[in-house]
């Protein structure tokens, strides 16, 4: 197990390296970032001076290697827009993104699971058809549009929910201000609800379809038939034999879903003015703030790979026959 974890952690380095390389190349392929840092009336000399000051006059491979060497030392440079360490800017926004991602993950898991199981156990019935039709609609709905519709209905028409904004819960918690974090909980949930729904509807739909398939697959297995033949009641058959065995593929999907939610928050954070990393990255890409984009990508890559690692490790707990070597 330890060897496996070490191997996976080493692989993480390779993955992060690859991701940073691709990000670096894509951001530079879209033009010289210098133009975002000069006045529209700047002279050619000023442009060249700014280019040099920002280091964009160096060959691309030198810029990239510099970034990697500094990254190894824990220094990802100063954000060009914010003029403070990019790492600090990203970490400042990370708690809000985690609130949204974890909230969305929990919601999508809690809702998708019963829907998937119910659809599987009622296969071919109207319940199954209705649930899967809903799932298909949910998967087809862009989160941007859904977010605006939620704002329109619950925020503007009914006035039940705040249109946009955020009340912090994790940030004060991480900073040791536990009382403030706990006091903020009701407000934090209020502000989280609509963005959380917008970010998780796609996941709910996709997960419920996958859970349905996984449970159906297990229900066809001999040991389920045997359990029923033994006269076990349906609840025991489902809980002890079917669902537990269906969990392995489901856990894989859920772990990937966590990473998917991290991507999805970019749009949702923008719609709901949520002060997270997604919105920050969007803004940083628009401004070609290379150090900030790279820092955010590195940190999100670690989260992405970490979620997958956790999923792999859970296999062993769910199915003792699996040994990770």
């Amino acid at each position: 197990m330890h060897k496996y974890i070490i191997r996976r952690l080493l692989l993480t380095v390779v993955v992060v390296f690859g991701v940073t390389l691709l990000t670096f190349l894509s951001i530079h392929m879209s033009g010289d970032p210098t133009i975002f840092y000069i006045s529209e009336r700047a002279s050619k000399e000023e442009r060249l001076a700014t280019r040099k000051r920002l280091g964009f006059d160096r060959p691309l491979h030198v810029q990239y290697l510099d970034f990697i060497v500094n990254l190894a030392r824990g220094d990802t440079g100063n954000s060009l827009k914010h003029r403070v360490p990019a790492f600090d800017v990203v970490m400042e926004r990370m708690p809000a993104t985690l609130e949204l991602t974890i909230g969305g993950f929990l919601l999508s898991t809690i809702v998708a699971f019963p829907i998937g199981v119910l659809a599987a156990t009622r296969r071919g019935t109207m319940t199954d058809g209705t649930l899967m039709l809903g799932a298909m609609l949910g998967q087809s709905m862009p989160s941007f549009w859904l977010g605006l519709m939620l704002i329109l209905f619950f925020g503007v028409t009914l006035r039940w929910m705040p249109v946009s904004g955020h009340v912090a819960f994790l940030k004060p918690l991480f900073e040791g201000r536990v009382d403030e974090a706990l006091t903020n909980v009701p407000q934090a949930i209020r502000y989280l609800l609509m963005p959380m729904v917008a970010v998780s509807v796609y996941s709910i739909s996709r997960n419920s379809r996958l859970i349905r398939s996984a449970v159906l697959e297990v229900l066809r297995q001999d040991y389920v038939v045997t359990a029923r033949a033994k006269g076990l009641n349906e609840r025991t058959v489902m809980m002890r034999h079917a669902i537990r065995n269906a969990l392995i593929p489901i856990v894989t999907v859920l772990a990937l879903q966590f990473a998917f939610l991290l991507n999805g928050v970019i749009v949702v954070e923008t719609v709901f003015s949520w002060p997270g990393v997604g919105r920050l990255v969007f803004d940083a890409v628009s401004h070609r703030d290379v150090p900030l984009v790279m820092t955010a990508v590195v940190l999100l890559s670690f989260l992405f790979v970490g979620a997958n690692l956790i999923a792999d490790l859970m296999y062993g707990f769910l199915d003792p026959r699996i040994r990770l070597e």
Binding site: L148, I151, V163, S164, V271, F272, S273, F282
Partner: peptide
């Protein structure tokens, strides 16, 4: 508020 429609809703 980055999204204009959201700002209008506010």
């Amino acid at each position: 508020i980055p999204e204009p429609s959201t700002a209008v809703a506010e």
